[in-house]
């Protein structure tokens, strides 16, 4: 998921940075004081999740958790993911500083899209069965979309689309399954413990 320095062409780097800037502005506008702790904790979760590798499948990949971030944070996933990725680039040398914009776009945009598509179903009032299914779809769908976006970025930089996309999606199949289950489990847990958190992102993005 983390695209290294020197792989992408300058135009896609600039485009990614522009989308990311817009997303971060949207996210910060919606960041109220009471949202700060959850945003920070999920940013930290995203930061460490990349250390959990999934050694199943053709290539070894890692958790992304962007579906979960999108579900809880909505647009605020953009700043949270940007910070997580910046720290990963600085401390772990995953990805790179020049590719920060593109990488953030690739992971945060699917988070927002999935929260818009599936967020309405993961509310404290919706039936539990629907909630679990929607959370699963949100978790795995965000990873799938991220993989496709990575393939698109590589395609615009001159790599063939289909082989790259196929490789990335196949490599991330186990991650998609795990993240779906993880997101479902998290929502089940949060509904019991702190249901306000799940009202959060979507309500804000709808109201403001």
């Amino acid at each position: 998921m983390h695209i290294s320095e020197g792989v992408l062409s300058p135009s896609i780097l600039v485009a990614g940075a522009a989308v990311t800037t817009a997303g971060v502005v949207m996210g910060l506008k919606r960041l109220e004081q009471k949202d700060v702790p959850s945003t920070g904790i999920l940013s930290a979760a995203f930061f460490v999740a990349s250390l959990v590798h999934v050694p199943i499948g053709p290539a070894s990949v890692h958790l992304v958790l962007n579906g979960l971030l999108g579900l809880i944070l909505g647009w605020r996933a953009f700043p949270a993911i940007l910070i997580g990725l910046a720290l990963q680039a600085l401390l772990f040398q995953f990805g790179g500083i020049t590719t920060l914009g593109v990488n953030t776009m690739n992971m945060a945009l699917p988070a927002v899209v999935c929260s818009m598509v599936f967020g309405w179903a993961v509310r404290p009032r919706t039936p539990p069965m629907l909630r679990v299914v929607a959370a699963f779809a949100c978790g795995s769908g965000a990873v799938l979309l991220s993989g496709l976006l990575v393939a698109c970025s590589l395609y615009w930089s001159g790599e063939a689309f289909l082989p790259a996309a196929k490789l990335i999606v196949v490599a991330h199949l186990p991650v998609m399954a795990i993240e779906g289950v993880l997101t479902s489990a998290c929502t089940v847990f949060l509904i019991r413990v702190k249901p306000e958190l799940l009202e959060g992102g979507y309500v804000h993005s709808a109201s403001s």
Partner: peptide
């Protein structure tokens, strides 16, 4: 969660495919 992630992430290191 963080403790578990730290343990899993740092003890077993089969591969980490974000960096070559």
């Amino acid at each position: 969660f963080f403790a578990a992630v730290l343990c899993v992430g740092l003890s077993s290191q089969p591969a980490l495919a974000h960096k070559v």
